[in-house]
Design a protein around this nucleic acid. Structure first.
Lengths: 188, 188, 188, 188
DNA sequence: GATGAATGAGTATTCATTCAT
DNA sequence: TATGAATGAATACTCATTCAT
């Protein structure tokens, strides 16, 4: 695919979109995003054909970054539960560190602008986590439940935990652990 | 003695809004909602001052109905876990029976049109479920976690279960039970 | 012409319209006028078929009242200039006493809702003043100018004087006299 | 280097507004003005932020043009009365030549959309005439009257004269002179 | 006659996208 | 390629008037 000249400008637009979406929601004018990014409003459309394309790209970019954050430094040799907890922790702390990205992602996730293809790509990007989950589930209480159901439950619990950690950063560490344990009890 | 304001018409507008929101999202034109309700587009505004007021009213109406559905026929004398499962089941089946209401509610819930007051009222309406949860948590694995965190986890798991049941109605009953058990393990 | 039941209500509407027009201009909603008058919005239309009809009626009512105020107690036996000054004075003081009526009248006068017929009727109502003017003009500096032109000049000067008196009520008496003298010099 | 904002387009919008206001009043839709100007309806708003801003700009533009018309070719060395008559004549003939501009100005002048700042700017633009008037008044019959009052009287008489000249163009010249003389008698 | 709910045409302004420069 | 002016479709809400009660 032919990339437009400046990768910097592309990133600036994505970063600006994140900020603007958090502040004003998905209804925010593209002109505002362009301004925040320091480019002319028409230029936005040389990097992203439509607003929807921009949103899909942003969704995937944030989700990718989140997954990479979570899988970073995975202790491959360790016990399964320990590996999972490591990932969980990185995941949660990424969310606490980049609350704007997470909030933008949350808004994008419920939007009907995000296509099934983009959502599918989002899942693929999370494959590492899904794999851990799969191995944890296989012998546990939910061995008979469909894996997608279990994944949905884990995700839901992860989101709830992130929310709580972000709201009450003082006790973030405690909530992180307690959320993980609840998830592990539920699923493994 | 003019025509009195009609409760029927109010309900028709709420019901129409539900359908239209599911089909077109929150950006749907008020004119479309009015048409779907069979009233003139100006009439919508004699029942709801603004679009935002309509959305807040709808959010609360659906949430109230959902809570009433869940708490219906509660076996007050039974064991705690049994009571909770009863409520859980009614709750899930309400969601399966009225998927449009649930989808509309989900969209409204993430909208920034819904005021904190409305959200607060929504919580009050769910007090019955919150109370059961509270009693379940008090002696269990999460007795030290903040109740709001536990409530958030339960809600998240409930939503995930509803989604799954709605997607795979054939096995709805199984998923309902399995979701409840996971929740109970996690929380009680 | 068949009069509606209550003359009181009709007057209340006219009075309310005066106040509302001053406060909000001619674009003010009929509903607001009705409310100010203490009647239901539909009732306004049993007294005045349309908003334009109401405005025409109000224009004429105020103009009539103004003319009657001006011609009151005319000293029929006196010198022409004295008679004229008497009328001028009454006219100006009516304007100072009822500034709202005058402001409403001013707005109505420039509106294109007021029909030529209504304007014509307004002139007839001012016939007494016009007659004095005519007698004053006939021998004076403007004896060759069309009477309508002279009337227009006098009116314009009268309006300017009223404005000034209303703005600076402290010196109203002085301005009244000075305005009259200027008019007399110009016209007689 | 995008298309620069076009001064022509701005003027076209002002000219179109003049015509449309005369034909339909100040309530005329902006879409109509845009169409008359030959621009898209959104374009109107790149030149004037709101309808009110457009109206204020138009008021000032017409008033400026009128003042410039009146003060053109002022015979600076001549007698005061002669200078004044020169200005008066130019002023009146400007009004006769551009009756639409004058009618639009009259409508705008009574509108409450025109801000005090704009009115103030309008006065400044007429400073040349005000100055002549001031010099004429200083030694005359109205030397003791407030200058604002005298200015108001002159303006009122000027407006009345313009109206009459426009209505009866055949005798415009005569009315022009006769109006001036009346004004001079009244004021100087 | 009185009421106020019902009607639906009407309108300023916004905004994604295009395009002349 | 970058710019920002140009475009015109889209939309919440208002309001004169009508009409059921």
């Amino acid at each position: 695919m032919p990339r437009p000249r400046s990768e910097d400008k592309r990133s600036a637009i994505l970063a600006a979109a994140t900020r603007v979406i958090v502040a004003q929601g998905l209804g925010a004018p593209t002109a505002g995003i362009a301004k925040e990014a320091g480019v002319a409003n028409g230029s936005l459309f040389t990097y992203f054909e439509t607003k929807a394309v921009l949103f899909n790209a942003l969704y995937l970019a944030i989700k990718t970054e989140m997954a990479e954050g979570a899988m970073h430094d995975l202790p491959a040799g360790a016990e399964l539960q320990e590996q999972f907890f490591h990932v969980w922790q990185k995941w949660m702390y990424w969310a606490v560190e980049f609350p704007e990205k997470r909030r933008a992602l949350a808004q994008l996730a419920v939007s009907d602008e995000i296509t099934p293809e983009t959502r599918e790509a989002g899942h693929r990007v999370m494959a590492g986590i899904a794999d851990l989950l799969e191995r944890s589930r296989a012998q546990g209480a939910m061995k008979k439940a469909p894996r997608a159901f279990v994944a949905a439950l884990m995700n839901a619990m992860a989101e709830a935990t992130m929310d709580f950690m972000t709201q009450d950063t003082e006790n973030a560490k405690k909530h992180c652990k307690s959320g993980f344990e609840a998830m592990w009890r539920a699923i493994a």
